[in-house]
Design a protein around this nucleic acid. Structure first.
Length: 292
DNA sequence: AAGGATTACAACCGCCAAGTT
DNA sequence: AAACTTGGCGGTTGTAATCCT
């Protein structure tokens, strides 16, 4: 028996969402919280399938999503993580909580893959990482200047908001902001009573966000995430990397773990690596994903 | 100016795993 | 145990904007 469709195909609207549809969806989620997506189209009157509603919410409407340019640091993280994990966009996105997996995937496919390929065509992997992209290890700045930022945003102005729908882009962003305001003004009960508890954790900004997120993991889903992270860590543990004693990654990790006090869980190895500029060189030792 | 080519990204599709009945 | 539901994920497509000739 095949899997039934998530909804009747007849009468289902496809294509871009309108502001009106977004408002309907957001209003409903404000009242009922995200989840039970199957009932969303029925209860809201939206002529969309449940899956489309869920996707629209998770990728664009939920609070805490950052739009627009990827920072050099974000790009660096994506490149590192893609080399490590391959096309595991959800896993990569868990280290960039303000970005969606879809965003990261699109950015990789349209910008980074081409950029990396073109650079790799003209240098070795070592040269690429040591001299090319990461020409400044203190800030992990990517070498945009090789042909200026136009390499990454050939069709974009410097402000780089989606030009195709700038008006509506603002609308979606405003809906997100409204929701963030609503979240903040809502009385804090326990997490299970707050329909946005999972987003609230991710809506904090700043460098410590990933670490805080790790420390705050407490739901069952979070536990699964911790398990995944540990699995990733084991994959890149010093023991599993050749010549760990010559390996900045291993040494740095060891130091980081030693420096952690007992009151806080140790930072994730991978996290530390990503946040620790001294570890950048380790990428030279890692094979690039077969995606290239 | 026109129209074909290219680019960027939102949205969709199909598969899968886990949970529920 | 089997059937079914739900949500997550990665790959792919559709389309509007922009570039190029």
């Amino acid at each position: 028996m095949g899997r039934p469709p998530c909804c009747e195909k007849v009468g289902i609207k496809k294509g871009p969402w309108t502001p009106e549809e977004d408002i309907l969806l957001v209003s409903y989620i404000q009242q009922h919280g995200p989840g039970n997506w199957r009932s969303v189209p029925t209860n809201t009157g939206l002529l969309r399938c449940s899956k489309s509603c869920r996707l629209r919410w998770t990728n664009y409407l939920r609070p805490g999503i950052k739009r627009g340019n990827f920072t050099p640091h974000e790009e660096g993280m994506i490149i590192h993580l893609q080399a490590l994990l391959g096309n595991k966009w959800a896993a990569i996105a868990s280290y960039l909580p303000q970005r969606t997996d879809n965003d990261i995937k699109n950015y990789w496919n349209t910008h980074l893959k081409k950029k990396l390929k073109s650079v790799l065509d003209h240098s070795t992997t070592s040269e690429f990482f040591s001299k090319g992209f990461f020409n400044d290890s203190s800030t992990r700045t990517l070498d945009f200047d090789s042909s200026s930022a136009s390499c990454f945003y050939p069709n974009r102005s410097s402000t780089a908001t989606p030009s195709s729908s700038s008006t509506y882009y603002s609308s979606a962003e405003n809906i997100s902001r409204l929701l963030e305001g609503w979240m903040r003004s809502s009385p804090k009960t326990n997490d299970n009573d707050n329909p946005f508890h999972f987003d609230e954790k991710q809506s904090h900004c700043g460098d410590s966000m990933v670490s805080n997120q790790y420390r705050e993991m407490k739901t069952e889903q979070d536990e699964n995430r911790v398990a995944s992270m540990k699995e990733i860590e084991s994959m890149v543990s010093p023991e599993n990397l050749n010549n760990s004693k010559h390996n900045n990654l291993g040494a740095s990790c060891e130091n980081n773990n030693n420096n952690n006090n007992n009151n806080n869980p140790p930072l994730s190895f991978l996290e530390k690596w990503l946040l620790d500029d001294t570890c950048v060189q380790v990428v030279e030792m890692m094979p690039l994903s077969p995606t290239f």
